[in-house]
């Protein structure tokens, strides 16, 4: 799924790295616990979270993810945006809650079935 499609489906604002919106993601992960995110490697995934701190950006970077969606209108801090820009990480923010945001992406084909244990 194109990241621009995710933006449209979630009616999300682009916070940074807009130039990457044409990139694709093939799976998604929704969690506020970063260690749960770190437990499974997915290829080119998007992270949906309601957690706002620098470790969200670092976790996504460690996982080679290329897009983070903050749900429930959460906004990253200036420091987080700087970290994200350094890595070309696309940041979106949506008013939708986690359950609805995940459901919309799933029902539109981002099923996250490429999960693999390393």
């Amino acid at each position: 799924m194109k990241i621009s499609t995710i933006k449209d489906l979630l009616d999300a604002k682009v916070i940074c790295c807009e130039e990457g919106l044409s990139r694709h993601v093939y799976s998604a992960c929704g969690s506020d616990m970063m260690s749960d995110v770190l437990a499974y490697v997915k290829d080119q995934a998007v992270l949906l979270t309601g957690l706002v701190n620098s470790q969200v950006i670092r976790t996504a970077e460690m996982m080679d993810m290329n897009c983070i969606v903050f749900v429930r209108s959460k906004m990253p801090t200036a420091e987080m945006i700087e970290l994200a820009k350094e890595n070309g990480m696309i940041i979106l923010s949506t008013e939708k809650r986690m359950y609805e945001a995940c459901g919309l992406l799933y029902s539109n084909g981002l099923v996250g079935n490429r999960v693999k244990n390393v």
């Binding site: 970063m34 260690s35 749960d36 470790q55």
Partner: peptide, 12 residues
């Protein structure tokens, strides 16, 4: 509340 302490660190 910071997103860690899920008991997954060492197993990961």
């Amino acid at each position: 509340s910071l997103g860690f302490g899920a008991g997954m660190g060492l197993p990961n």
